[in-house]
Design a protein around this nucleic acid. Sequence first.
DNA 1: GCCAACGTTGGC
DNA 2: GCCAACGTTGGC
Length: 159
Amino acid sequence: MQYWLMKSEPGDVSVDDALAAPDSTVPWVGVRNYQARNFMRDAMRIGDGVLFYHSSCAEPGIAGVAEVASAAYPDDTQFDPGSAYFDASATQEKPRWMMVDIRVLEKTRLITLAELRSHPQLEEMLVLKRGNRLSITPVTPEQWRFITQTLLISGARNN
DNA sequence: GCCAACGTTGGC
DNA sequence: GCCAACGTTGGC
């Protein structure tokens, strides 16, 4: 069992959008970065924990808890010339980009970037590192526990 | 919209 | 394989 943080632009796919989908599950379309793809293709397992992060928006932060709901499979938008995610060098025989399905388990209070940065326990989180641009990053068990237990459960009483 | 930081591309 | 130029990310 591993843990991940996955960024999505809420104007594209938000936690609410995922919850509105059948089985609260959405395909993680559009990853076009090799490192992020490799995480999905090589390291993710069904049932892994996912922090659903809203990025490139007014209030960036963790907005939900989710899980990996499928093995990796080809992202069909790479084959679609009409898609913003089209990749001319990908073929059906040799797909370049993969994705997994993500099932949202719970919409949480928004844990903002500023709040995440305020906790020394989280200072090693990759998503908080200077210049980080990876849309998928591993989360340690300790970080996962701190966020899902301390911030979301204990913290929920204060909200 | 700005811009720092990083990833990718492509000429050599 | 180097590295400059370019494109993208994403917070502010």
